[in-house]
């Protein structure tokens, strides 16, 4: 009887686990089925590299959105990575354990704020500031970069803190025993030793930045055009889907699914790199 129950539980858990994977597979298959044919009919080049997005005229080129996503994400990295890295080093190396135990969960709370709230702050506070000081519409790449940079901070910070904390103390002792200062120890031993974890954190943050939709829609202005500067308005891939899906039909709808395929591929490639960075760290 006991054996039977055990086997039953085993099966049940397996079915639950497999159904999670099945759902992922179904989602991917569905998006591919809806989007891929369109890409092949239009041609990958025309779809990715044409600048004309005029659904009414049957023209579907996502180049401006691709560029928009790229710039906003890059900007988010420029804002988020230095802040995240410096913060992680400070929190894990310079403050007492009890303080870290308060600060780290507090930062992780940032991840729990709904993205629409970030967007709201961006629209109400950040965009006017940018408009006043740098000109342009305010709703711009810069605004998106700053908001996204803050949104990815918790990801980068907490993964980096964990990997810096996982560096064995014996490395630090070894460096101190050779007369290294604390800062020399950090940048010559600790960060190289934690590098793979830090890289993984950055890549996961990158993935989050590319995938973020709501906050971005609210602050980047959503104009379909190639930006001339960081203070121009752009539209990202995610925004493109979210803004138009409501009324799209036929070819237009297929084009949006194809945009989804592009996003999916980007995110999968990033996750692959993150996973291999983590694996490399474990091997060491």
């Amino acid at each position: 009887m006991k054996v039977l129950t055990e086997k039953g539980i085993y099966r049940l858990l397996m079915i639950i686990a497999l159904s999670a994977i099945a759902m992922l597979l179904l989602i991917v298959l569905f998006i591919l089925k809806e989007g891929l044919p369109f890409i092949f009919i239009t041609g990958i080049r025309d779809f990715l590299l044409s600048s004309e997005w005029k659904p009414a005229a049957g023209k579907f080129g996502i180049f401006p959105m691709l560029v928009g996503s790229l710039w906003v994400t890059l900007g988010a990295m420029i804002v988020g990575v230095p802040l995240g890295l410096a913060g992680a080093v400070f929190i894990s190396e310079f403050i007492p354990r009890w303080a870290m135990k308060i600060i780290k969960p507090t930062i992780e709370l940032l991840a729990g704020i709904p993205s629409v709230v970030y967007g709201f702050i961006g629209v109400m506070v950040l965009a006017p500031l940018i408009r006043d000081y740098f000109g342009g519409p305010g709703l711009s790449i810069a605004a998106g970069a700053i908001i996204l940079g803050i949104m990815i901070l918790p990801t980068i910070l907490s993964i980096s803190i964990d990997s810096i904390k996982a560096v064995p103390n014996s490395y630090r002792e070894g460096a101190f025993a050779l007369g290294a200062t604390h800062w020399q120890t950090i940048h010559m031993v600790v960060i190289p030793a934690a590098r793979s974890g830090i890289v993984a954190g950055i890549i996961l943050g990158l993935g989050r930045a590319i995938g973020e939709t709501m906050a971005v829609i609210m602050v980047v202005g959503n104009a379909v055009k190639l930006p001339g500067s960081a203070f121009d308005s752009v539209r990202t891939l995610t925004a493109n889907i979210a803004l138009e899906m409501g009324y799209a039909t036929g070819k237009h709808r297929e084009a949006l699914f194809a945009t989804g395929v592009v996003l999916l591929v980007i995110i999968m490639v990033l996750n692959y790199f993150a996973a291999s960075a983590i694996k490399r760290g474990v091997k060491k």
Partner: peptide, 12 residues
């Protein structure tokens, strides 16, 4: 200088 109980070469 100091040599420790567990060898602790840096991961370099």
């Amino acid at each position: 200088g100091m040599v420790f109980q567990r060898p602790n070469p840096f991961p370099l």
